[in-house]
Design a binder for these strands. Structure first.
Length: 502
RNA sequence: GCUCCCUUCGUCUAGUGGCCUAGGACACCGGCCUCUCACGCCGGCGACAGGGGUUCGAGUCCCCUAGGGAGCGCCA
């Protein structure tokens, strides 16, 4: 009994707060959000904190923060890290209790008094004998009244689901198509732990049904859970969502993403300076292909073309170069204000924001944005273009020496002879005329004179890369151009003097 | 061990029996754009894991092999 089409779509993301979000989780969240948005439906957030040992309040807060940062707003869900009875499974006992009772009453589940030690031994034996490690059903035939008495006497017990024998469970996977599983390959599984908390299989499936979830996109590792959850939901008389299983996401080396491997955690990527839109664009194409690729797009456009049927079945590898390409593409389309906000959010980038005069900001962004990838890239140009002290680095001095002081004199003269309103080309045209230099012999020394300035954190010669000289030129006032040329001439004369002395 | 899943250029992928001498994007290499880097444009390199079938015809269907993965928990 699975949900059918033609009703409003409702998806969810249901993380357990036992670690930070990484690329893999984030993709799952994104896909569910895109699916909901695509259909004009709703996207919910639920916290699966039934593991008392490992769930941590601060992870909830971090989770919410990461999702908000990514731009994945949820239509319904927790508003903060404080557990509430609606969205935190640890507080939803009241919803579960009647279902346990029903399971017990119909015989669909039974009390199991097996100790963990016995189960461990059992699994070990089964494995050694080359058999699948499954519960052997020791408590399945216990007399119900006896079991209740032992329970009442305080003997610890789990509630175990009785998987019907010799049946086939069929379902249609949203991404993998028709699936069929023999119930004889399934062992009786735990529904409620001895400490009274619900087991994942139970709480997860039940909450999806109770919350009216219609579609669930989740990791492939849940594929074999699906028949169990279907059986369970049928036994409590709830309607199951449709499930779709996403291929695993692996790192650049082809290894599964791990919570311990921190470099692909969302907060690490954010600290590095990646934009949420870059991440979303990257993720939206890992294991999913657009029929018509929208290019660097916002969530709305990403959602428009999103289609679960176009999700792949093979593991997808995260290629950092691809992510960087999205970062560049997204950055390229950001307006100056957004670039400013991005930079202001990072310690490094803030230095750039502070250095560049507000009025010059749009021009600065226009000139430099093609050369940005991370916040620190902006700092060097901000410090170079709006430098107070002017000192040339070794490569610049080489270029000045090679060009000769006469050349610089000519450049300065051409500049002072320039009528107001004349542009970069007028200037370089005149310099070319006076000195007979063209191409790199003309531009290289001019670039050295105007931008070959030492900047903290930049490697020597950094200025030789970067935006077109002409764009930078228009960023400077005439006085600043004079100042730079004058400094270059002084440096050149100093070099000459040094040479004469030796 | 058992059950299930997966396998197209370096990477993400298109491809649902003829439109495929396998297309695109990113990466890489080369060229152009009056200096460099980037952008843009043009071009290049580059793949159907292997073997058997089925078919007039297979990347597409079936089987086997190899390789990878998941599940089999009082973890989610």
């Amino acid at each position: 009994m699975q949900k059918q089409d033609r009703e409003p779509i409702r998806t969810r993301f249901a993380p357990s707060p036992t670690g930070r979000l990484h690329l893999g989780n984030a993709r799952t969240a994104l896909f569910n959000a895109l699916l909901a948005r695509h259909a004009g439906g709703e996207f919910l957030l639920r916290i699966e904190d039934t593991d008392r040992e490992r769930s941590r309040r601060e992870y909830v807060a971090a989770l919410l923060e990461d999702l908000r940062w990514l731009g994945l707003a949820w239509d319904h869900g927790p508003s903060g890290a404080e557990p509430d009875p609606d969205w935190f499974q640890s507080r939803r006992e009241a919803h579960y209790a009647p279902l346990y009772a029903r399971l017990l009453a119909t015989g669909a589940a039974y009390w199991c008094f097996c100790t963990e030690a016995r189960l461990a031994r059992l699994r070990q034996r089964q494995r050694a004998a080359g058999r699948p490690p499954r519960y052997d059903g020791a408590c399945a035939r216990l007399d119900a009244a006896d079991a209740e008495r032992r329970r009442a006497a305080g003997e610890p017990a789990v509630l175990r689901f009785r998987v019907p024998a010799g049946r086939r469970v069929r379902f249609e996977d949203l991404v993998r198509g028709p699936q069929e599983v023999d119930t004889d390959t399934l062992g009786d599984f735990v529904v409620r732990r001895a400490d009274g908390t619900p087991a994942f299989l139970f709480a997860n499936a039940v909450d999806d049904a109770l919350m009216g979830i219609t579609h669930v996109l989740r990791g492939e590792d849940h594929l074999s859970n699906t028949p169990r959850q279907l059986l369970l939901l049928a036994a409590v008389g709830l309607e199951a969502p449709r499930y779709g299983h996403l291929p695993l996401l692996v790192d650049a080396a082809g290894r599964p993403l791990s919570k311990r491997l921190g470099s692909l955690s969302l907060d690490a990527l954010r600290a590095r300076g990646y934009l949420p839109a870059a991440l979303c664009n990257h993720l939206a194409r890992l294991g999913h292909a657009y029929a018509e690729d929208p290019g660097p797009a916002d969530l709305e456009a990403l959602a428009r073309g999103f289609d679960p049927a176009r999700i792949g079945r093979a593991p997808a590898r995260h290629d950092p170069a691809r992510l960087d390409a999205w970062q560049k593409a997204v950055l390229e389309r950001l307006d100056p204000g957004a670039v400013r906000a991005w930079l202001a959010g990072h310690p490094e980038g803030r230095r750039a924001v502070e250095r560049v005069p507000r009025a010059r900001w749009p021009d600065f962004v226009a000139a430099v944005r093609g050369n940005l990838r991370f916040p620190e890239d902006a700092v060097r140009w901000a410090e170079n273009l709006f430098a107070e002290a002017i000192a040339y680095d070794a490569y610049a001095l080489d270029a000045l020496r090679a060009a000769g002081c006469d050349f610089l004199d000519a450049a300065a003269e051409a500049l002072s002879a320039l009528p107001p309103g004349a542009g970069f080309r007028d200037w370089t045209g005149r310099v070319a005329e006076r000195t007979g230099r063209r191409g790199r012999w003309l531009f290289q020394p001019l670039r050295a004179a105007l931008t070959g300035i030492q900047v903290s954190g930049a490697s020597p010669g950094y200025w030789r890369q970067g935006p077109e000289l002409g764009r930078l030129w228009s960023l400077w006032e005439r006085g600043e151009l004079d100042r730079r040329l004058e400094a270059a001439r002084a440096a050149c004369r100093h070099l000459d003097a040094m040479r004469e002395r030796t």
